[in-house]
Amino acid sequence: MDTRFLGIAELAEVPPVAVVVDVMRAFTVAAWVFAQGAEKIVLAESLDEALKLKASHPDWAALKDGPPAPGFDMVNSPGLLRSADLGGRTVVQKTTAGTVGALAVKEASLVLCASFVVAEATARLLRTHGRDSVTFVVTGEDGKADEDLACAQYIARRATETGADAADFLRRAGESRAAAELAEGMRQGVHPDDVALCLELDRFPFAMVATVEDSLMILRPCAVLPG
């Protein structure tokens, strides 16, 4: 499998297959949203769009980075989402990097959103589809976030080597700047367990596939059979 690892700004053209990686915390949070029962996630382009979507769909919930804010129901923290009941709901998500990266490749034929908690299911989906060329979008720190790059490299390896060891990749993510900022309370809207939850390998058995539906980019879980 031919792989490329690019930051959002380096995407000169739309790739045929894109895996958009945001470990800390957008796509760890997205997986938790589905685990808490949500039907789908709408990836919003801006905070204003997120609020407008919620205003026109009062039963939807809205989620953002940073501290709580009027109109938003949740913040981008897996630790704070563990007690949420999202059964059957639609969640609108807007984050600094993850949602931006997904929207940047929305025209790709296959868009997967990923983190360590769905790494194996994502790799299996790539294997199942027999993709020859995959672009991994490293969303954090202008493409330099080591937790995202480590996760992307691990998924790429798992897609071709089913016995690949995750230890070094998880170590890199745990030693990343993002992990330190979360652990040291330098970011807002954080739970003390967030870093540990972001480093839980293969917690969930599904991949996450994003498609454009009625001009909105919709993320849904996709069950992937072992093998």
Rank of each mutant, 00 (worst) to 15 (best):
A156K: 13
E45D: 13
V137N: 00
G98T: 02
A179T: 09
N76R: 04
C113S: 09
L51T: 10
Q36N: 08
A210G: 01
L86A: 08
D65F: 03
V212W: 08
M186S: 14
A38W: 00
D85K: 07
A196W: 06
Q93H: 13
A207T: 10
R220W: 02
A69S: 15
E141A: 12
M74D: 06
A150K: 06
S56A: 15
L6Y: 07
G185L: 03
A97E: 11
V23T: 06
A38M: 04
R124A: 01
T3F: 10
T95E: 01
P67T: 07
R172N: 03
K144R: 15
A119M: 12
L201T: 05
L216S: 14
S56C: 11
T3A: 14
S46V: 04
P70E: 15
T3L: 03
V138S: 03
R127F: 06
P70N: 13
E13T: 14
T28S: 12
L81I: 10
M24D: 11
A207R: 13
F204N: 03
G101W: 07
E10N: 13
V138L: 03
A180S: 13
P68G: 05
D194Q: 08
A26M: 08
F169P: 00
G189A: 05
R25E: 04
R25F: 01
R157D: 08
A152S: 13
K52G: 12
G87A: 14
A119L: 11
F169G: 02
V105I: 04
G98I: 00
G98K: 00
P67N: 00
